[in-house]
Structure formats: C-alpha cells, structure tokens
Computed example of a mutant assay.
Amino acid sequence: MTSPLPHPATALSRRRFTRLAALALTAGATTTATPANAATPDAQAYYDRARTLAGDDQVLLTLVKALTPGAVVPRPPAPEPLMLFDNVAMLSVGWVSAMAVLTDDGIVLIDALPSPEEAEDTVVAGLRTLGLDPRTIKYVIVTHGHDDHFGGARHLADQYGARVLMTGADWDLAADSGSPHTPTRDLDITDGQRLTLGGTTIHLHHTPGHTAGTVSPIFPVHTAGRHHTAMLWGGTNPPTTPAALRTYLSSIRTFRTHMHRAHTDVELSNHPVDDGLQRAEELRANPDGPNPFLLGTRRTQRYMQVMTLMLRGRLASATT
C-alpha cells in the first residue's frame, strides 16, 4: 500500500455528474430554516454574523443552513466510492459517510454506517471497487454512539477481526440504545489518544456536545506528492439544553486550538452539512484539478468560527 493509489475507474459521465449534483442540490433545498422573525434578536445577530463570515463560500453557507434551527437533514442519493486523497476513501450512503484512512499496514475506518448490510454493500464493496482489500481493515473508530455511525462496526469486527474504538461514555450510550447492531465493547478512546498504524498517526480528541463522548480526529492526508492535515468534526447536530450547548461550544474552542497546532488545512464530515458530496463529485469529474477538500488553514478555522457563531445563536435562544 506504499505506491500511490489510482483514482477509481468509476468516474462519472458529465450527464450522470449533472444528474447527481442536481439531486444533491434538490435534497439540500429541502432544508428549512426558522424565519428570521422567529429567532430572538440576540440569536439572530449571531446567525447574521455567521452568514456574513460565510460570504459566498458554499462550504460555509451549507454549514450555516445545516445549523439553522428548523433545518431538515438532507437525504441525497448515495455516491459511488471515491478516493478523496491518495490515502483517504469516502464510502457513503448519502446522508452519512465513512472515511477509510489507508496506511502501509492496513486500513483505519472512521465510522461504520448504520447497519451490517450497508457496511457490506457500501464499505466492503466500495473498498473492492477502489482496488482495496477490506480484509486489511484493522481499526474502526466510531466518532459517537449513534447507530448510524456504529451500525456496521460489529459486522466488520466479526468478518475481518477489526478492533472497534469508542469513548467510554459512548460505549455506554450505544449499549443503552437498544440497537440490534451494537458492537461488543472493545477499546476505549481517551482524550488526545494517538492511534498509529503503518506510520500514520490519527489524533483522537474528545469533543462532547453532540453526545457525551463524541470524538473528532485529526490525521495526515496526501495528494500529488503534497502532505496536508485533515480534521473531521465528529458530531454536528447541536444539543438543545443550555448546559449541553455550552459544552459543545467549549469543545469547538478546544478543538480549534488542536487544529491550529496541527496546521489543519482539510475539512471532512460524516454528514452532508458541508457541501461535501457536491465537492466529491467535482473531484470525481476533475481529478487533476484543485482538490475541493483542501480549504487551507484559514478557511478551516473560518469553518469552525461559523459553527461557533451558529451555536452561540442557539444558546442565546435557549437562555432567553
């Protein structure tokens, strides 16, 4: 796995790309927002500042829309598997995605989709489509204990011997969920833990708020001979109580510090709240062009600033 990975042979035709992009935009258009006059003045001021900061940046505008109270989670069609970077594959059912980080000694999977069937049909089949061997999945990092992220983990552990990691709090959350797909408790993630495989180190940071034990990874990626650093925010949908919103804001603040120290310049997401699926299709259609996931350090920080402002607006409403 040391040689550069080719782009998949499943490149979309212009017609199919246009159709999929249109469907994704249509799905995004179903997002609804609370009317401006329904927000408190203090909350609306934060939302307005977020939109101003976003400017005409489609990635940031999509995040604003996703975090606006009353937003509906889009349900875009599932894309074909795709190498986002030479060492990162996206395996998605549309509304939720898994990322496979490739190392010299195997694969680290970030999230595992909602069910064993989707893990098999999307993760396993997708890796094979990309010329990768699912038998080399060594670890499954579950960002948080909701079944759309852990649902396929037990299947991958049973089939390939993959070790499953989650925070202690979210192992408990998963166990209490009543899901028939909850994995057997395996490895606990500690805050700031480093998972190293094949010379690749993934830093795992506790970012509670979406759940008590949400984890957000920072890890190296490379493309065209250049090295970058990616982040993936582990849980986007905000909580509703003031205490939990303050916890969420504290997590954003701490994680931004980790991002700054790591010179993070790539943003990824496990849900389509960041225009990620549309960017993936742009990359598929033009694999030799600029990588749309490479935002640069300032823009990735702006992404988190926009998130902060939107959460402060929600907190202003919750405490009014």
Rank of each mutant, 00 (worst) to 15 (best):
G145K: 03
D147K: 12
D148Q: 11
F150L: 02
G151P: 12
G151D: 14
G152W: 04
G152Q: 09
A153I: 10
L156K: 13
L156T: 09
A157D: 09
D158I: 08
Q159A: 14
Q159N: 07
Y160M: 05
Y160I: 08
G161D: 12
G161N: 05
G161M: 08
R163V: 03
V164P: 01
L165M: 14
T167A: 15
T167C: 10
T167I: 08
G168Y: 01
A169K: 13
D172V: 14
D172W: 12
L173R: 15
A174E: 05
A174T: 01
A175W: 06
D176H: 14
S177L: 07
S177Q: 06
G178N: 13
G178Q: 10
S179F: 07
P180K: 03
H181I: 03
T182M: 04
P183N: 03
R185L: 11
D186C: 09
L187K: 07
D188H: 14
T190K: 13
D191K: 09
G192A: 11
Q193H: 09
R194N: 14
L195T: 06
L195D: 07
L197H: 08
G198M: 10
G198C: 11
G199S: 11
G199C: 12
I202F: 00
I202K: 00
H205E: 15
H205F: 12
H205C: 13
H206G: 07
T207N: 02
G209K: 08
G209E: 14
H210Q: 07
H210L: 04
T211N: 09
A212V: 11
A212N: 13
G213A: 04
G213P: 07
G213D: 05
T214A: 07
P217W: 00
I218Y: 05
P220D: 00
P220Q: 03
P220C: 02
P220V: 00
P220T: 01
V221M: 00
V221T: 02
H222M: 05
T223L: 15
T223P: 04
A224Q: 14
A224L: 09
A224S: 15
G225W: 02
G225M: 03
G225S: 02
G225D: 01
R226M: 00
R226P: 00
H227Q: 11
H227K: 11
H228M: 01
H228W: 00
T229H: 05
T229W: 01
M231L: 07
L232R: 02
W233T: 06
G235N: 06
T236D: 10
